[in-house]
Design a protein around this nucleic acid. Sequence first.
DNA 1: GCGGGGTGTGAACTCGGGTTCATTCCTTCT
DNA 2: AGAAGGAATGAACCCGAGTTCACACCCCGC
Lengths: 208, 208
Amino acid sequence: MAYRRTERATKRLADKRQRILRAARELVADGGWAAAQVDHVALRSGVATGSVYRHWASKSELCAEIVATVSAHEVGVVRAIVESDEAPVEKLTAAIRTFASRALQGRRLAYALIAEPVDPEVETVRLEYRAQLAHCFERILREGIMRGAFPRLDPAVAAACIVGAFMEALVGPLAPSKGTGARADRYLVEQIAQFCLRASIGTAERKA
Amino acid sequence: MAYRRTERATKRLADKRQRILRAARELVADGGWAAAQVDHVALRSGVATGSVYRHWASKSELCAEIVATVSAHEVGVVRAIVESDEAPVEKLTAAIRTFASRALQGRRLAYALIAEPVDPEVETVRLEYRAQLAHCFERILREGIMRGAFPRLDPAVAAACIVGAFMEALVGPLAPSKGTGARADRYLVEQIAQFCLRASIGTAERKA
DNA sequence: GCGGGGTGTGAACTCGGGTTCATTCCTTCT
DNA sequence: AGAAGGAATGAACCCGAGTTCACACCCCGC
């Protein structure tokens, strides 16, 4: 046996893997899952189609990893807010604003990750993500109810409503690549945040 | 020229067309768009695959017609409420409850029509439907704002949020054929309605 | 620098699913 | 009843997209 992978070689492997992953993510980010064909991914990352299969056993696994990677990151951001020691209302506001504006930075990707169905294997991961996200909001709501800051709403249902409201108002009616400008985006986020806040705390108006 | 289609024959044609359409709708209703393969539709409606193409030029057109038919009906129901002469708050309540409970009667179909992407041709029709639905709510909101019953929210954004909240809380996290029983459904509709109402009128609690 | 095994390549294969079309069946009109 | 032509049939066709595999290449250890 004359060969043991040198460290240098291992790194090259990992790098290539990352390159492919990134290329795939970029394709999804501006064309949805439909644009992430194995050929295209290979082309964009500068490898041959067959090479993709040296790193993932199937296209589904590649896609699943994209979903897992990106969403883990997003959930992490929101979760940090949840676990801060602000008051529930502040947490909710911050969580909504943060998530919404992040999603707006990559509408198409956000849509693909949140709403667009794919094959069952990927779907599993996607639902997991959505569940975690909803769970974050649920925790905030539950805390708020306990402290008497929110009315007696059902946290699970309300959390789902919040996520849904995002999805539709933010990335739903989007014609692909509908760039509306930073000002409009800011306004949109603000409106959505206010909507969800009113729904959660039961009080009109709220300006920050 | 020896042949003019007799009335009887014309009716037979139309009937067959309806049979196919219904079969397709049923398949979508319990398997999503993926289940509506031309072969299956033909099998279920008792015709040959080729016969489907005597009535529609392509599968897309068949699907588009399903979306158009069903959604026209649903929008009609909601629109009737919008055009009644109740007060805005009552209208909103009724519209939400009605739409939600109708959707629950056929979750899978509702999901397919509202959220599940298909090919571009069908997508166009679907977006049209969703826009009309949102527009119904927008009208109610606008009226309520004018009369001072609702706070100064952005009607378009809020309408999108309402539709989205529905979608997610009602049919989103649904595992296919997740029958939870009439009581649970009623509770769910009520929670969603309250959420949307609080968000719209900015007041906690509301029981009917 | 030479042999061997990991890595890269891309053309070919496979397979699912929409579409077609030559043929057969059936209805209408004389 | 027989001719004429529209409707029905379903097996064959086509095409796109994921997957494979025989071969070329290169990097490592001697």
